[in-house]
Structures are given as structure tokens and as C-alpha cells.
Design a protein around this nucleic acid. Structure first.
Length: 683
RNA sequence: GCGUCCGUAGCUCAGUUGGAUAGAGCGUUGGCCUCCGAAGCCAAAGGUCGCAGGUUCGAAUCCUGCCGGGCGCACCA
């Protein structure tokens, strides 16, 4: 945990800037605290002298020197040195730093915001099996949840279930029109243990798509089905509800394999039945944000005007080159834009689009709707209830906790829906809630596609996209890698690897270990790329357990744990007894020589977990955490090879090394846990 | 066309809200298992950071314009 040290150093610097340099705090630049590129340059580096150079009209070097002198003694800092180029470098007191971290006596920084955060992720249409694209959403969303909780923030995880959309309707049509099944027929199929219901629907959904293409008039059937489902109280609606329920249960099982969990399932049908939309609609109408279009192609629809606030009306004149000629663009573009865009909220047939329902839902999340759901227990895992919304008042049963009323909301959805998410924010601010609009965050990420090699392997290569850099996943066309198939393959591969290394292990145990390895492999793979990058999913690459992979990280921790197993066996000591002994030892092994520098470097690096979590949340980049964990595992492996513990005869050196490893493995285990990965006992 | 994201080593990607000598994985080549587990470690080769201007003490990073590509711009979600 390094942030408390940052906070102290920053405070002292601000103090010095105020009192020695006479700069009031409000006018001070932000003080960045960096990690120097080489250990010899110190443990923390501050480039603030560069910022001040122009303002003070002095060389950065001179400022750095005066600043370093003005700081005086700082608790926990051994020395402060102004570098020749203008950096101020801090060297920490290694011994006290290590001891405090091992003993957990570092006081946590106070939370600046304690309000509840709602994170909505997964939100898979409940009409088919989950695929690799959905997995990216869940891996990112679940990691965000874990990071926020790590910081001590209360988090509510919601999974939105779109049970009244076209996709469920399509599968219902597949069952009723293409297969001639009634409710009982579908139920019999779903209850058949030989049938994987979500896989069955995957194929059926693709067939329905083809069926529509065969005759566009069949789209009429879809419109009718959607209407029936939204209305309720008819056989199609019953079938739809059944399909959604069963598929959601499949998704929950798949996600449970991935260590992904939720607090609440929000069912779209409840938003309709409880008239959430009606309430939101009334307000939007009253404010004129939504109006009935009477002419043009959207006649008969209730529409919302789309604010084009991204238009380049405010020219960045200040930043443009001073000698650049004045742009005549302003004058030329004076014509009124006739392409003013409008988004349909209520269709001419009276049904509500996704946007409308989502607006109501977003208002509810912030506690702004003045209505609430009823709640029911949908399922149990480990004795804890998983709650779902419902439209009927419950009769008895456990009392539901308070849902909603968030102070901040993160919606984890891929970047293709950026435009819809922008509408959500827009409607919040039009309705007079700019603060909530501000705290409505679209956690956007790019889609997962298939590499050409993988598409070919799955038999999709000849379909399309040969000229493109990747092959797009399409649930509608039944093209993609199913999440459970991927996990099964990873487990099979991992089982082979485990049995090869641990031949005496019972198959059941090998299987449990293989599952942990498989989960780490997928989850790490899905978060290690920054979110703005399209992942061209390659199955061979994902199946690898070497190099920059989840299993590599697990392996590092397993090795570290092995050292402690052996120390316990041979010397009868564990991390706690070692920690207790450190007081009496000379700190030379920590301070003198290259080995000491390396050992210290490992501890310092491991301590940066809180800093990395902070950065990951601010940038919404789980990849920062992944990179940190990988680099730390690399450093550990290097240390492991260069500085043995069991074979080390000098007791003080041995114990300091063991202490460093204890801290490193604790931090690495934590980092893995934040990505939803567990570490097996051996592998 | 408008909006948005991406372009860094053969391939896949990092690059800490402008900072110290551009890094890693895979692949290639060559080493290391009587030595805490080789899912590992060490070393070598590999770069006009898409192009051109600009801002700055300093630019892969910020600005402008191009080039190439992805995605979005439905009475789907």
C-alpha cells in the first residue's frame, strides 16, 4: 500500500510550496508522484519543479534543490535528493516500510466518496447461450465491482434482463412457428437432461433469422409476437417468460463458473408492468423533452431530439497556432441544419423502444423515479439469496434489502451502444438532474471478434469478412465461441497439463485445479487488453498458459507458497513468525548491495497495488491491474531464481527474503482475486 | 457524409492524466533442471512510434491537417 506515502509526500510538498515559495495552494500545479525508471534514482519521483520553472523564472534544478531542502524530515522517508535535471527524488526508509506492510499497520486513506455505486454488467439477451463477447463484458464489469469494493465503496451489482425485447420474441417464434411447440413442448425440451437448452436456443435463433430472410413478410409475425409478449397474459408471453427464465439460469451457471456474481436481476418486463416507463414518460412529455411527431417518416412516434453538443461550435482558437489564418468556416456553416436527428422512444404501434425502458431504469437506479420494484428470491448460492425484481407484492419470505438509490452508476456495455448511453445522460440532465447525469458512466469497451484462424477452425471462414482484419461474432447468425465450450476446452487442456506434472493426483483434484487455471486463463485474457481495443479472439492464443497469461501469475504464487510450505516443514516457521522476528534482525539484507536493492524493489513494486487500483478505476482500465500483476510476477520469478531462500545460510538474509516473498505473494494473490482468479494449492 | 475508436518490433499489445536510455509476450536463435517446481530463468536479433506541420525546456503522449482501418448514425438492443 503506497498511497498513504504519496499522500504524506504530497501534503509536505504543498506545504513547502506555500511557505517557502509563497504559492497559495489553489494556484499550485497538481503534484504528480511517479516511479523512477531506475532504482538508483530513488523510490518516488516528483517532477513538479518543471511545472514551476516558467512561473518562477528559475531553472528546474535550482527549484528542486530548494524544494528538497525546504521539505526537511518526512516520516518514512530516509532521504530526499534533487536530481541534476530537476526531479525531486525520494528514498524511503526500507525497514519501517516493509514492517508496516507485513503487519498491516498502514492506516488506510479515508474515502472521499462513500455513496453507493451501482454497476450493471452482463445483460445478455436471455434467448441463447453466452458467448465470448459476453464474457468480456462480465470479466470487465465484475473486476470493476471488485476494485470498487477493494477501495471500500458499497457496490450493488445488477444484471439487466431484457425479457421483452425482439430477441426473446424470435426464439418464441422459432418454437411456435418453426417447430410447432406449445408451452408444454418447450418445457419438456428444457427439462430434458440430454438437451443443453441454451445451446438449443442458440441454433434455433439462427434458424429464425434465416426464416425471416426467406420472406420479409414474416417480420409481421415478429411484430405481433413482440406486442403479445409486452402485453402479457397470453400463451406467447408465457412461453417467452419461460424461455427467459430458463436461459437466465443457464447464464448464471456459466457466470458462476467464471466467479461472476450479482446482487439483483432487473427484469425489463417489471419496468413495463409496474409502469416505470409511464411515469418517466409523463415527466419527459411535461418538460417537452419527448414529443409526438406528426409529420415525416416518424409520424405517429414519440421522439426525443438528439442534442448535437459534440458539434464543433466552439473552435479551439487558443490552442491553434498563433499565426494560423482565421478560419472562414464559421460563416460558411451558418445554414440551419435540416438533419436534426430524432430518436424514437415510443413506436407508432404504441410499444416502447429499448431507450425508453432504459431511461426509466436509469432514473430508478438513482432513486429519482418515485417508484420501486417488488422483489423475489430468484435463486440461492451458498445460502445467500440472489434477488430479482418482480411485479407482484411478495407474500411473506425474507425481506429484500434496499436496492437502487445510487450516487453513481456504471453501465458496462460495448462501444456500439455509446450513442444510446449518451441519450441516457442527456435525458437525466434535461429532467433537471445534471449531477446524476455527470455520475452516469458508460463503461465502454470494444467488441470481441474472431481471428481468421479461429473462424476457420470453427467452420465460419467462408461466410464473410475475408477482407477484414477479423470475423465478427454474431448471435443472430449463430456465429461465435460459446462461453461454456471455451471453458470446457480450457479445462481439458489444463487437466492434461496438471496430470503431467502431478501424476499421483486423483482425477477429481486435478479437475478442480484445472478449473481454477481455466478461469484465470480466460479472465486474464479478457482484461489484459485495454478496453478500446478490438479483441480478435484466437483460441490457440487463449489456450496458452505461458508468458503473459493468467496461469503464469498463478504459477508465481504457487511457487511462493511452496517456499513457505518447505519453511514450515523444515524450520517450523510461517509468515507471521518470520514477521515477528524481523525486529531483531539487522536490516543490511534490505539496504546494502545489489541483492538488497532487488529485494527492496520487489517489496516496493508489490506495494503499488492500491495505486494501481486507483488508476484502473479512474481510467476504467482493468488492463492496468493486469499489467501490474504480470510485471510483479515477472519480478518475483527473477528474484526467485537469483535469491534462494531455503539454501541461504545467513539467517537474517533468509528471513528478509522470506518476508519480501510473503508480502509479494499476498499482493499478487489479491491482484488475482480482483480479476476474479483464484490460486490453486499446486498446479 | 457526420460522430467515435484504433494505428508503436515479423505477430499481439504496454507505455503510469507531457518527463529520465521507447518496453513486454509470442515467434526466431543460443544457453540454464544432481540447485525453494522448466507453466520458469538468462542472452541475442528485431523500431522513420501511420505521414506532415505545430505547441513546449521536453512529444509515442497535446493541437491541426492528411492516410489506412474498426464501429455507430433503425419504429433492433
Amino acid at each position: 500500500m503506497i498511497l498513504p506515502v504519496h499522500a504524506l509526500v504530497r501534503t509536505r510538498l504543498q506545504h513547502a510550496l506555500t511557505h517557502t515559495f509563497g504559492i497559495p495552494e489553489a494556484e499550485q500545479p497538481d503534484i504528480a508522484i511517479e516511479t523512477p525508471p531506475r532504482r538508483a534514482l530513488g523510490d518516488l519521483a516528483v517532477p513538479v519543479a518543471f511545472e514551476l520553472a516558467r512561473r518562477l523564472r528559475r531553472a528546474p534544478r535550482a527549484i528542486a534543490q530548494e524544494l528538497a531542502a525546504a521539505l526537511g524530515e518526512v516520516p518514512g522517508v530516509a532521504r530526499i535528493e534533487p536530481a541534476a535535471n530537476g526531479y525531486v527524488n525520494f528514498y524511503l526508509d526500507r525497514r519501517s516500510f516493509v514492517l508496516a506492510r507485513l503487519r498491516g499497520t498502514v492506516p488506510a486513506l479515508p474515502l472521499t466518496d462513500t455513496g453507493k455505486v451501482i454497476v450493471e454488467h452482463t445483460a445478455i439477451n436471455p434467448n441463447k447461450a453466452a458467448h465470448i463477447g459476453h464474457l468480456r463484458n462480465s470479466a470487465l464489469g465484475d473486476a470493476l465491482v471488485r476494485l470498487l469494493r477493494f477501495q471500500g465503496r458499497p457496490v450493488e451489482v445488477q444484471n439487466y434482463i431484457d425479457d421483452t425485447g425482439v430477441q426473446v420474441a424470435d426464439v418464441v417464434i422459432g418454437f411456435s412457428e418453426l417447430e410447432g411447440r406449445d408451452f408444454e413442448g418447450v418445457k419438456a425440451l428444457a427439462d430434458d437432461p440430454a438437451v443443453r437448452f441454451d445451446y438449443y436456443c442458440w441454433d434455433l435463433y439462427a434458424k429464425v433469422t434465416e426464416w425471416y430472410e426467406g420472406d420479409k413478410a414474416r417480420l409481421q409475425v415478429r411484430a405481433q409476437a413482440m406486442h403479445a409478449i409486452e402485453e402479457g397474459g397470453n400463451p406467447l408471453a408465457e412461453m417467452g417468460a419461460f424461455v427467459a427464465d430458463r436461459i437466465v439460469r443457464c447464464h448464471l451457471r456459466t457466470m458462476a463458473r467464471m466467479n461472476v456474481d450479482y446482487d439483483l436481476l432487473t427484469w425489463e418486463g417489471d419496468i413495463l408492468r409496474l409502469h416505470f416507463w409511464t411515469r418517466a414518460f409523463e415527466e419527459l412529455k411535461a418538460l417537452g423533452a419527448v414529443f409526438l411527431q406528426t409529420e415525416g417518416r416518424l409520424a405517429g412516434c414519440w421522439v426525443m431530439k438528439i442534442e448535437d453538443d459534440t458539434a464543433a461550435t466552439d473552435a479551439p482558437a487558443e490552442t491553434a497556432a498563433a499565426d494560423a489564418p482565421a478560419s472562414p468556416r464559421q460563416e460558411l456553416d451558418e445554414e440551419p441544419r435540416e438533419d436534426q436527428r430524432e430518436k424514437v422512444i415510443v413506436r407508432s404501434n404504441g410499444t416502447v423502444t429499448y431507450v425508453g425502458k432504459d431511461i426509466a431504469n436509469q432514473f430508478w437506479k438513482f432513486g429519482l423515479l418515485g417508484k420501486d420494484f417488488f422483489y423475489r428470491v430468484f435463486d440461492e448460492r451458498g445460502g445467500r439469496p440472489l434477488w430479482a425484481t418482480t411485479s407482484d407484492a411478495p407474500s411473506g419470505g425474507p425481506l429484500a434489502p434496499s436496492f437502487g438509490h445510487a450516487s453513481a452508476v456504471y453501465n458496462v456495455i460495448d462501444s456500439r451502444q455509446a450513442y444510446l448511453q449518451e441519450l441516457l445522460k442527456q435525458s437525466l440532465s434535461t429532467m433537471g438532474f445534471p449531477r446524476e447525469a455527470e455520475r452516469s458512466t458508460h463503461f465502454s469497451y470494444e467488441m470481441v471478434a474472431l481471428s481468421h484462424a479461429t473462424a476457420r477452425e470453427l467452420g465460419y471462414a467462408d461466410t464473410e469478412g475475408l477482407g477484414k482484419p477479423f470475423v465478427e461474432v454474431s448471435g443472430r447468425k449463430g456465429r461465435g465461441v460459446k462461453a461454456d465450450d471455451l471453458l470446457d476446452r480450457l479445462i481439458a487442456t489444463a487437466t492434461g497439463e496438471v496430470m503431467q506434472r502431478q501424476p499421483e493426483l486423483p482425477a477429481a483434484e486435478a479437475r478442480v485445479i484445472a478449473e481454477a487455471i481455466a478461469v484465470a486463463a480466460v479472465r486474464y485474457f479478457l482484461v489484459k487488453f485495454s478496453r478500446g481495443k478490438v479483441i480478435a479472439f484466437d483460441i490457440q492464443e487463449a489456450l496458452s498458459f505461458e508468458g503473459d497469461t493468467g496461469p503464469y501469475l498463478q504459477y508465481a504464487v504457487v511457487r511462493a507458497n511452496n517456499i513457505f510450505n518447505k519453511l514450515r516443514e523444515r524450520d517450523g516457521v510461517d509468515a507471521d513468525t518470520i514477521t515477528a522476528e524481523l525486529d531483531t534482525l539487522s536490516p543490511d539484507a534490505l539496504t546494502e548491495g545489489d541483492d538488497a536493492d532487488e529485494l527492496w524493489g520487489l517489496v516496493l513494486e508489490a506495494s503499488r497495488l492500491d495505486e494501481v487500483v486507483d488508476s484502473a478505476i479512474r481510467a476504467l482500465e482493468i488492463a492496468h491491474l493486469a499489467k501490474f500483476a504480470f510485471t510483479l510476477a515477472q519480478s518475483f520469478n527473477t528474484f526467485y531464481h537469483r535469491q534462494p531462500i531455503m539454501r541461504e545460510e545467513r539467517a537474517d538474509v533468509r528471513l528478509w527474503r522470506a518476508a519480501a516473498v510473503a508480502y509479494c505473494k499476498r499482493q499478487l494473490t489479491q491482484a488475482l482475486a480482483l480479476m476474479g482468479c483464484e490460486v490453486p494449492g499446486r498446479m
